[in-house]
Nucleic acid binder design. Structure first.
Lengths: 223, 223
DNA sequence: GGCTGTTGTCGTCAGCTCGACGATAAGTCG
DNA sequence: CGACTTATCGTCGAGCTGACGACAACAGCC
């Protein structure tokens, strides 16, 4: 059996919410092909490594980020997606809280946050990976507690709402949102503390609860 | 760069509803490893072939089935999942209408339908692929028009409801279900014809409409 | 034909959730 | 202290859902 040799990589769509924008982690490629162009972080899977382990390792190597959530997204294997050889990549989606610009890693020249809006021209087929990742994140906010993955360990209802608004690109009613998330059992656990900010009434602080699904879902209407 | 050679395969979780049971297409392996054991159909991706194309080809080769829906499920690449060499498989989920037992293909000795309930002991990690595929199908019935993929081109509301009941393992109220699916615009298109069966009032025949999502979703409650 | 059993389809009604919005609480800033 | 900002609680009507009654339209049997 002459099974043609494939290379297998993992690529990462790392999303966060920074200053009211949905941002993705990009690295600038230092080697051909697509040298000097932006790309998603990623790399080859090692001989004795599971796919998920490879994703975690690449994320740590290239960014050193604290990850809030990591899941497999999809695989992409068009024959001509890499001009060098046949490469199948297993894309992963990571959601992380807002963090300072990650440090440059070993493989890549520099890692930086870039707003997703209007972004294009990435290396390989990474435009598509990014689009699929963003769509997955948008969809999952509807029926899961994944919005909290964008938040720090302790956060307010307003912070969580801002996450939804930024990811969906749509304003939500603060009162209805508050009723929904505080009314769902197991979603949020109050810490008992409050915040003080520049103005306005202090808000209750919560941490993620044990619930991971939102039943019934929080639907984004077409409005 | 010595990238270790991987083999890449596609495996198929082909589901259908037969005689009030959710069934999966299995083949009996003729070669080692796991010779004589049941497995999901699948095979190696060819050098110039896209992943989706490979899935379609394998499905046609091994079964000759008419496919109602095909989508990528997930990828599995544990280092020891194949004792021969490092293999990453891209699992796909196919939903097909009830059809006679498929003909044996080239690679496999025989293909047959097996009820999913209580099924285990498949080759490789196919138990997990199957479980993930079934769960994906169950979840997708909630918010998509995918239930029609299990139905022939022309079908009744009761047939579609039976699909939901079998996949979810839970009875649904015929009147509420009827109201829901006929009330969702674009989901079903009436053909104008009716059926006659052994007993009972003849039913309207419908075909799939243009809608592919169900808004609002049809939730399976925990009851 | 009449009766029975089966299945499909239409209605009704209470309960829940949601969206829109008013009202109040509790801080900061000038 | 007043103005402003933000958080949180209530209220109300619309829409969807689940439970269920009622009727329609067939086959089969006596």
């Amino acid at each position: 059996m002459a099974h043609p040799p494939f290379a297998v990589t993992v690529d990462l769509v790392v999303l966060t919410v920074r200053s009211d924008e949905l941002c993705v982690l990009l690295v600038r490629r230092g080697v051909e092909p697509f040298a000097g162009q932006d790309a998603l972080p990623g790399g080859f899977v090692r001989p004795d490594e599971d796919l998920a382990a490879a994703a975690v390792r690449e994320l740590a190597e290239e960014t050193g980020l604290t990850v809030g959530h990591l899941e497999q997204l999809a695989s992409y294997g068009a024959p001509d997606r890499d001009p060098r050889q046949r490469v199948v990549t297993v894309a992963h989606l990571a959601l992380v809280p807002d963090q300072p610009a990650p440090t440059a890693g070993t493989d890549a020249e520099a890692a930086r946050w870039a707003p997703v809006a209007g972004l294009s021209g990435l290396a390989f087929d990474h435009d598509r990976l990014l689009a699929d990742g963003v769509e997955r994140a948008r969809a999952k906010l509807e029926y899961s507690a994944l919005g909290t993955a964008f938040c720090p360990p302790s956060f307010t209802v307003a912070q969580l709402r801002r996450v939804y608004e930024v990811v969906w690109g749509r304003d939500l009613d603060p009162r209805n949102f508050h009723r929904k998330v505080t009314g769902t059992p197991g979603l949020l656990e109050p810490t008992g503390e409050t915040t003080t900010r520049d103005g306005g009434r202090p808000a209750q602080l919560y941490r993620r609860g044990s619930a991971d699904t939102l039943h019934p879902p929080l639907l984004r209407t077409d409005a």
